[in-house]
């Protein structure tokens, strides 16, 4: 049923797309039709696959590093008042900086290759992961803390056995946000400076007025993002159940 409705929505979108192309008669270097994009995608499938692989590696490493960093930061914040006073404002400030503005700097520091893109992905997901997990850690249902106190639990044991398990659903929702954001970070990084990846391919195609190839790369990125979202959803399903 879900598959069927997804198929229907896709067909509907394709029909609108084709209708606009037919009705406006725009040249194909402005707006290529779905059939042309599909053909171009098929002809360039190996090139697209190669660039998709590069972007996927950046995104997955970024997702892993960003999650670990975010989790560690949230634990530190939850555990120490000093960390909250010193680090929290900094965290908010970094979030206020547009990531786009940092991209050239990261390319300068980390070079043209993989790591500047990983860093972009990490930067873009670090805050959602940290803040959602931290919120979860600070909102443990108070009854559980009372119970743990009457059992003479140490702070550490309380964190490990009560607060972290109670915060896992919040972490799961942070990770789902991260799965959506991480590809954006990697692609921005590729736009600013790279010789590989879907972002690079899109920029290259755009520069040569190969709009059909640009669409093919863009749609591939979209499909990749949806797949990533599904994988992360499935992976976090086990920890997503709320503690009352």
């Amino acid at each position: 049923m879900k598959l069927l409705s997804g198929l229907a929505a896709t067909l509907f979108a394709l029909a609108i797309w084709q209708a606009i192309v037919s009705a406006t008669g725009l040249p194909k270097f402005i707006l290529p039709g779905p059939a042309l994009v599909a053909e171009t995608w098929w002809q360039n499938r190996w090139i697209i696959a190669e660039h998709t692989w590069v972007t996927a590696v950046e995104v997955i490493i970024g997702l892993a590093c960003g999650t670990v960093l975010g989790v560690v930061t949230a634990l530190q914040l939850a555990n120490s008042r000093a960390a909250r006073v010193l680090v929290q404002p900094m965290l908010v400030f970094t979030q206020a900086l547009p990531v786009f503005a940092l991209a050239p700097l990261l390319t300068l520091w980390l070079g043209y290759g993989l790591w500047s893109k990983v860093a972009m992905a990490v930067l873009i997901i670090y805050f959602p992961i940290t803040s959602s997990f931290f919120d979860g850690l600070m909102r443990t249902p108070p009854g559980y803390l009372d119970l743990a106190r009457t059992m003479q639990a140490s702070r550490r044991a309380m964190l490990w056995h009560i607060r972290i398990p109670a915060a896992l659903p919040s972490l799961a929702s942070g990770m789902r946000l991260a799965a959506v954001y991480a590809p954006i970070g990697a692609v921005i990084g590729e736009w600013v400076g790279s010789s590989q990846g879907l972002g690079y391919l899109m920029l290259l195609a755009n520069g040569r007025a190969k709009t059909d190839l640009m669409f093919a790369a863009m749609l591939t990125l979209g499909v990749f993002s949806i797949l990533l979202d599904m994988v992360v959803r499935r992976a976090t399903a086990g920890i997503a159940g709320e503690m009352r």
């Binding site: 059992m151 044991a157 309380m158 056995h161 398990p165």
Partner: peptide, 22 residues
């Protein structure tokens, strides 16, 4: 509120105190 840990089994919940005290 029974304050049972939702991801722990019945036996693990009964043993919570010992676990919290190590």
């Amino acid at each position: 509120d029974d304050l049972l840990l939702p991801r722990a089994t019945v036996a693990q919940n009964v043993l919570l105190g010992a676990r919290l005290r190590g």
